[in-house]
Design a binder for these strands. Structure first.
Lengths: 326, 326
DNA sequence: GCAACGATTTGACTTATGTCATGAGCGGTG
DNA sequence: CACCGCTCATGACATAAGTCAAATCGTTGC
């Protein structure tokens, strides 16, 4: 892309204002434009990530409950969104927090994986703009349309766009109608190659899905409610990157999973920073499964969810999950 | 340190204002305090690094001259401060730019080395505040007082303070009166251990010094002007972390260097990101030596200096310096 | 128990910033 | 070359943010 002159001016304005601390009228004078234009340039600079304003998320890790969760479950860092006090609506708060945490966890040059679901969609939607050229955002699961939210490729693209990162999509359906076709497609060089790069990610972002009738997979038509029930009988309790996991967080050898094109769960577990975000209280059992399966090194949950996890973890006398042991 | 209640409120205010985009009066209402207090908290949040505002330094790398310098010399990235246009005083601009670049190059968890000199002092002085717990700032050279600027340990400490990082100092003088004493002191476990950790740094920040009568080392009394002349006759052309280097950027086996306690030049060259900042035009020869010696992977200079380097580099038919080859 | 101090809060004021309707510039097009 | 459609620039106004002296609060020392 050619370097537009306005971009140059925008950069200069941002530099003088934010890095040198000049006032807008001083910047205007120095650049020979009106102050109103400076204000416009500055907004654009913020919107394009040339200027980056970030807030430490320490507020949410600075909590005894977070320490306890980390100590008990082996999660590296936990962020806890309070529900009690006057604060904010936790449903609105969590995506903002998750987006900030996500940005905190990215390093220059990283490859990051993004999965899909209502939660991820909301996070993408409030993701701040940043200047992270050199970062690559890859799609963790195959595509599936959803009437009320982004498709997986759109999530990836949107996040990449906001970060000024490169987005790598993955043009295969999430679920196919036959196991044979899924198998063949997985074997296709283009697909196989992309799936194999997932283990090289430094960071992954996902939520865990439930298996109720109103779960995301059912709502999007990947499975009928009946089929989902049957999967539940076969041991499925949650969904990670479109795939069903059992109570221990292991891949379920069921019809749906065999028909599914998505990141191998082993590849996901191999990722250094596995960021799991859970909003809904109804996702308690899936969350437990994901934790046992080692799918979270960085966890964002509500206070009540954190308490329930602690309780259950202790009741069942579970020990820490180490990435190495899973 | 105990978590003060005001810190908690400051965090919340910063979070609501910067991450949620509420206005100050909305934040005030939500926290049950006055808007004036919110403004105060927000300033403190910026000053303590809880809120981080950074500007991309792309403006300064986005220049054909920078590309040419990188291609010719093998420097990974060059930032070039323009002198011509109306812009800013380059002497004031460069420390601000260098500080921004420095922050851009740091990653979470890094160990970074900081040397000493007028330039480094000025950079420390304009370093923005950031929340970089987990980062360690180490002192690259022994201590020496200076009437008009910080001591090495003060530079390290100041930068660490602003970054909320850990500062590791190094309590030995830069120069001793006898070679024997320097040798013995270098052998002391405390000192030796600290010097040995320098090669583990991910990033180092320094300038290059000259050997004129008004050079930093002479002004600070480490050497007399006469002694410096003699060192020049022995081949010294510049100073890196208090030590004299010759025209090829190699350690000079001279009285001063043997009496000096500082990071081993080999350790410095082993650091992945070697950030070299040169302000004064008079430092051309020292800069050439430092470049040949492989002391810069990331370079911040003025336009005129960049031009001179390009000219000389081509005239002498020099080739790229690779970190691996030095 | 009270004086004295520092830290924090606030209301009232000043200053800076955001916004928007309007107009200017500019390249393409019939 | 006149028209359109676009982006960008600007002045004037509305709004938000910064500042400061004075008041309040909480702690410490005597």
């Amino acid at each position: 892309m050619p370097i537009r002159n306005t971009d140059q001016i925008m950069h200069k304005a941002a530099w003088l204002y934010y890095s040198h601390g000049l006032r807008q009228d001083e910047v205007a004078q120095k650049l020979g434009i009106s102050r109103a234009s400076v204000a416009t340039y500055l907004r654009r600079a913020r919107e394009t990530g040339i200027v980056n304003i970030s807030t430490s998320t320490e507020l949410f890790t600075d909590d005894v409950l977070a320490r306890e969760l980390e100590d008990a479950t082996g999660v590296t860092t936990a962020w806890i969104v309070p529900e009690d006090r006057q604060a904010m609506d936790p449903t609105a708060e969590m995506p903002v927090l998750a987006a900030s945490v996500f940005l905190e966890l990215i390093n220059k040059g990283d490859r990051v994986g993004v999965a899909w679901g209502r939660t991820v969609y909301h996070i993408a939607d409030v993701m701040p703009f940043a200047d992270l050229r050199g970062v690559t955002v890859v799609q963790l699961c195959g595509n599936l349309g959803a009437p009320y939210s982004y498709r997986p490729d759109q999530c990836t693209t949107e996040i990449a766009r906001r970060l000024n990162a490169e987005g790598i999509n993955f043009y295969a359906p999430l679920v196919l109608s036959s196991e044979r076709l899924a198998e063949e497609l997985r074997g296709e060089p283009v697909i196989r190659e992309q799936l194999s790069t997932i283990a090289d990610c430094h960071l992954a972002l996902y939520s865990v899905g439930g298996i109720e009738d109103d779960s995301h997979l059912v709502k999007c038509g990947a499975l009928s409610a009946d089929e989902m029930h049957r999967m539940g009988e076969e041991g499925a309790v949650g969904v990670i990157a479109g795939q069903l996991i059992d109570g221990d967080g292991q891949w379920v050898n069921c019809a749906h999973n065999r028909r599914c094109i998505s990141a191998d769960l082993g590849s996901i577990r191999a990722i250094e920073k596995r960021m799991l975000v859970v909003q809904e209280d109804s996702k308690f059992e899936p969350l437990m499964a994901a934790l046992k399966g080692g799918f979270a090194s960085h966890l964002v949950v509500t206070t009540s969810m954190a308490r329930r996890v602690m309780e259950r973890w202790q009741r069942d006398g579970l020990s820490k999950v180490h990435a190495a042991t899973v």
